[in-house]
Design a protein around this nucleic acid. Structure first.
Lengths: 126, 126
DNA sequence: GTAACTACTTACCCAAAGTATACCAGTATA
DNA sequence: TATACTGGTATACTTTGGGTAAGTAGTTAC
């Protein structure tokens, strides 16, 4: 029977499913945090320092107030960004990366490194 | 004028925009490759060895033939996965990670590590 | 009084992503 | 003869992500 032979050749079919599933969960958790057209651009902008809402809107090119507000809320929920309402006139709101937010640096750098290699590789082929 | 003071406090407003934009491009290139509900699960499954189409469909829980076919085609286009048609009866098609595909390991591990920490952190708060 | 600044929210719309179901041709098995 | 295997494709449907445009509320400058 073919199937049996193929299993043997392909290496282990039985794997630690719970560890594997947990790893996949974790990866998806990380990607969820970064998901969305603007998340990384916002995080990146905030690595240069605190920004107010309108400042962010000007620096993150093309983003609308709705999307900025939504993405910031999600980043805040994940404790990556700290929102501070300042008692000025008019009221201003400051956003900054939390210490926890900066722990994403390694992930982002890794993505960036791989992305650059990939970009070169794929462009070269065309 | 408040604004002037704020700029000084917040550090450099002028940054190397071209380097920065290039980095963002690279990150998005990497995320594009991983985008899609099933990509990472497929890659992960293939790290355990070659798989045929139907084998993948059984192992990647819940995926439809249409999505599997589409995601595999995209992975193949990005040279992460090699597709081999074998002259058996019936014809079988084998998918495997390319060497290039395995260079994603570091990125995926980084995502996984951060995701696990994040998962623990967020769950603890509830 | 009206425009412009602050920081948003709301309602509506479209396109892309994903799901469900059926179908194809060829071969083997009960 | 009917069923199940191989690797997909075709069609229709729903869900989601994100864009557009307008509104809100309070303050200030012209």
């Amino acid at each position: 029977m073919k199937t049996t032979a193929r299993i043997a050749k392909n290496g282990p079919r039985i794997k630690d499913h719970s560890a594997c599933a947990y790893k996949l969960l974790a990866i998806n958790d990380a990607l969820d945090v970064l998901r969305g057209k603007w998340k990384i651009q916002i995080i990146n902008t905030l690595t240069f320092g605190k920004r107010r809402f309108k400042e962010l809107q000007r620096e993150v090119n093309g983003i609308t107030a709705k999307m900025l507000s939504k993405e910031l809320r999600e980043l805040e929920m994940n404790e990556l960004v700290l929102r501070t309402v300042r008692d000025t006139i008019p009221v201003t709101v400051e956003y900054e990366l939390t210490d926890y937010g900066t722990t994403l640096d390694k992930v982002i750098d890794e993505l960036s490194d791989w992305g650059m290699k990939h970009r070169k590789r794929i462009i070269k082929k065309r």
